[in-house]
């Protein structure tokens, strides 16, 4: 009975943690999905915009408080994104997607250095606002802070709002149409260039919003972009390029998989018994003894490679690139 209780506790808590982490991933990758699906640009600087959001959030919180920062910082980041699109990407567009991607690659380098020039390289003291600094509820004597629930709520609101805008509004229809038939949309008299600029701005603003929110929960420092960048690509490619629900599902899957991988402490050795290797440590014995928890963070990459080989359009995508 005690044993069953512990298993139940583990499952409930891991699911909760998994959902919370997954929603954070979605918050981060929603902007990237919007940009990628619209413009086909793999924005390597997306995580840098997220970092900018966190640092703007930190600075504005210091000056005018968290809630104004919560609104202003994403707008600032969005404005920067629009400038980047207007004066950078638009000029590069004619040279193809590789050139665009490399532009954002260089941008990521520059932004990281600029951020560390201004705010230094040590983590800054960016705190959860006092209004949300209390445990929301307790399950199995584990507290869940209100701030995490707030993050979850924001993610869900963004998901629903984006979905509504894309599916139900005129703007969304143009965006959807430009996704598949950019020339046609252009011929119909829409300014595709401006649509792109706005889309890139909105995507960047979403990254900025993620930064403002995730900054206090994680560590706000100048290498936070580099450590989170690649996993975002995994999410959007895994979910399917251009599919918002796909990114949502992929975020949840990756969040849950990672969390449960940590919770399950198994290794091949614990399942099949210790390896009978006479020759001391070898590559096989290394693999044999490694626990699932140890490899948890590389599981997403494994999933990515597998899904791309099996289903190149991703989980819920409709086209390949």
């Amino acid at each position: 009975m005690v044993h069953e209780c512990a298993v139940l506790e583990l499952i409930v808590i891991s699911s909760l943690n998994g959902v919370l982490f997954g929603m954070l991933l979605f918050l981060l990758s929603s902007g990237l999905t919007v940009i990628f699906s619209m413009m086909g640009v793999l924005n390597f600087a997306h995580a840098s915009f997220y970092m900018l959001g966190a640092f703007f959030g930190f600075q504005l919180t210091k000056w005018i408080g968290f809630w104004p920062a919560f609104v202003l910082a994403p707008l600032l980041v969005g404005a920067i994104g629009m400038v980047v699109e207007r004066y950078g990407l638009r000029n590069t567009h004619k040279h193809g997607h590789v050139a665009e991607l490399l532009l954002t690659f260089g941008l990521a380098f520059a932004i990281e250095e600029i951020v560390s020039m201004i705010w230094g390289r040590s983590p800054v003291d960016y705190r959860v606002p006092a209004l949300l600094d209390f445990p929301a509820f307790t399950i199995f004597s584990t507290n869940y802070p209100a701030y995490k629930i707030f993050m979850l709520a924001v993610s869900v609101v963004i998901f629903v709002a984006l979905l509504l805008v894309l599916k139900r509004t005129r703007v969304g229809l143009i965006v959807q149409a430009a996704l598949t038939h950019p020339h046609m949309v252009g011929h119909l008299g829409h300014n595709v260039g401006r649509v792109f600029m706005v889309v890139f701005g909105v995507g960047s603003a979403l990254a900025g919003l993620a930064g403002v929110i995730a900054g206090p929960a994680l560590v706000t420092q100048s290498d936070m972009a580099a450590s989170l960048g690649p996993i975002l690509f995994v999410v959007i490619v895994f979910g399917g390029l251009g599919s918002l629900p796909g990114a949502f599902v992929a975020s949840l899957v990756i969040g849950l998989v990672q969390t449960f991988a940590v919770a399950l402490n198994g290794s091949l050795a614990s399942v099949f018994g210790p390896l009978d290797s006479p020759g001391g440590p070898s590559a096989l014995s290394d693999i044999w003894n490694v626990t699932i928890a140890q490899v948890a963070p590389i599981i997403p990459y494994l999933l990515l490679v597998i899904i791309l080989i099996v289903r190149p359009m991703g989980l819920m995508g409709t086209r390949e690139s």
Binding site: P230, V295, I298, V305, E320
Partner: peptide, 24 residues
């Protein structure tokens, strides 16, 4: 295209991470 680029990114991360696990 993008699919290749992403797979190469994934493989790169996988090998780099495994290099710390496969100590022998």
């Amino acid at each position: 295209g993008t699919v290749f680029a992403m797979i190469s990114l994934g493989i790169g991360e996988l090998v780099a991470s495994s290099s710390l696990i496969l100590r022998s």
